[in-house]
């Protein structure tokens, strides 16, 4: 052991006097390099590039437009369509997050008990999550049709008048929320189910001996033990909801819904970039939105500091 301290110049064979370049690179760098190349090219660079582009009057042509300074940003701050699209995204997030989290929890609590046909219940709750957005949108577009749509058909058969699921501006986003609830609640359901199975059985046995009923065990053991998972599910759901694009775009086939009432901010970015071909302006909006998402993410790190130890 002590021999190492003196770092004696090893007797290097002549043939290896000049090792190949890649041999002099630390092994760790070689291990991380392939990923880092992808990461730099397709994540870091686009992120920087988005901010950079937002100061240019860039269009689709690919040639760099003229530098316009903060003009895109000031235009954006006064752009009513941008604010209304951002408002739509936030509206969707606020409406969709509570039911997606709560129903996921309820589904997990229901099916974590011993009961017949458990595989069937799990399959029905989780299956929609495996469908591509386009499949889910085609199905819901069909369900929401006036007259011959299943939902309106059910309403009229109950003697209730039809609802303009896709045509009423005040309902347009709610229709997206309902479809999304059906589509993605299975993911939260699975997260809760996995967390439930990690609660030690002894806790329940001890509580049973003390005479605690199902309800008491739920409130004094299950829900407190799920606290950390709930924090995680809420954060993941908030971030997923803020990224709304696919289903809103597909259900309304790119129209933004009646009076643009279901156009999320990412669809506005898309419209600006690929319909109006204003890449610079679209970059300003997406950069702005990106900052907003980072703020939400950082806030969650502050709110749930228990996760930090994991990230070491």
């Amino acid at each position: 052991m002590a021999t190492i301290t003196t770092q004696a110049p090893a007797a290097v064979p002549v043939t290896e006097a000049r090792p190949a370049l890649w041999r002099r690179v630390p092994t760790g760098v070689l291990f991380t390099l392939p990923f880092l190349l992808f990461y730099a090219a397709f994540l870091i660079w686009p992120t920087i590039s988005a901010f950079g582009l937002s100061f240019f009057n860039e269009s689709l042509t690919g040639t760099r437009g003229e530098l316009v300074g903060l003009r895109n940003w000031t235009e954006m701050l006064g752009d009513a369509a941008m604010w209304s699209a951002l408002g739509n995204t936030l509206y969707f997030t606020v409406l969709s997050t509570p039911p997606l989290v709560l129903l996921g929890l309820v589904m997990a609590l229901l099916t974590n008990r011993v009961m017949p046909l458990r595989w069937l219940w799990r399959l029905s709750f989780f299956m929609p999550f495996l469908l591509p957005a386009s499949v889910m949108s085609l199905i819901w577009l069909w369900l929401y049709q006036p007259g011959f749509g299943l939902l309106n058909g059910a309403l009229t058969s109950l003697g209730i008048s039809e609802v303009g699921w896709l045509s009423d501006p005040s309902l347009a986003m709610i229709s997206v929320v309902i479809a999304t609830l059906w589509w993605t609640v299975g993911f939260n359901f699975l997260l809760y189910l996995a967390a439930l199975q990690q609660i030690p059985e002894q806790l329940y046995e001890a509580a049973s001996i003390d005479g605690a009923g199902w309800w008491q065990r739920l409130w004094s053991i299950t829900l407190p033990m799920l606290g950390r998972t709930t924090g995680l599910v809420i954060v993941l759901q908030l971030l997923a909801s803020l990224r709304l694009f696919d289903q809103a775009y597909l259900i309304y086939q790119g129209s933004g819904g009646p009076a643009f009432s279901a156009r999320p901010v990412l669809e506005y970015v898309y419209d600006t970039a690929f319909t109006s071909f204003r890449f610079g302006y679209a970059s300003a909006i997406s950069s702005f939105f990106f900052v907003l998402i980072v703020v939400v993410s950082v806030t969650q790190l502050k709110l749930f500091p228990s996760r930090r130890e994991d990230e070491r």
């Binding site: 990461y39 870091i44 686009p46 988005a50 970015v269 970039a273 950069s287 990106f290 998402i293």
Partner: peptide, 21 residues
């Protein structure tokens, strides 16, 4: 740290520069 920070980046906001790239 840079890689972990990247988890926060939603790929959807990168579509414009990515398309240009």
């Amino acid at each position: 740290a840079v890689v972990v920070a990247g988890i926060m980046v939603p790929p959807q906001v990168l579509v414009v520069p990515l398309f240009r790239e």
